[in-house]
């Protein structure tokens, strides 16, 4: 199956990573792969929020933003 590559920034860890997924993958698949509970984050692409069922595209730049209060 064809693969897509996604650039991901995880704000809670202040970390950039690259993720490889099947080309019909969604935000939900990305969060599963990264073992992130969807209840604890919001996800943006090009400064717009996207939902868990949104399909991802090759070379997408995704931000995963924590909803957890800092203290």
């Amino acid at each position: 199956m064809k693969k897509i590559k996604i650039a991901v920034f995880i704000d809670r860890e202040n970390k950039n990573i690259n993720a490889e997924l099947n080309d019909d993958s969604s935000v939900s698949d990305l969060l599963k792969k990264l073992k992130i509970n969807p209840v604890t984050v919001i996800v943006s692409r090009n400064s717009e929020l996207i939902l868990e069922d949104e399909k991802l595209n090759d070379k997408d730049k995704i931000k995963i933003l924590s909803v957890i209060s800092g203290g």
């Binding site: 704000d11 809670r12 919001i42 943006s44 933003l65 924590s66 909803v67």
Partner: peptide, 18 residues
């Protein structure tokens, strides 16, 4: 999650600080 979404779309969400 609702509060964070509101903060995001209204420009109130700063860099994550814990």
């Amino acid at each position: 999650k609702e509060v964070t979404t509101y903060a995001f779309i209204n420009g109130l969400l700063d860099n994550f600080n814990e």
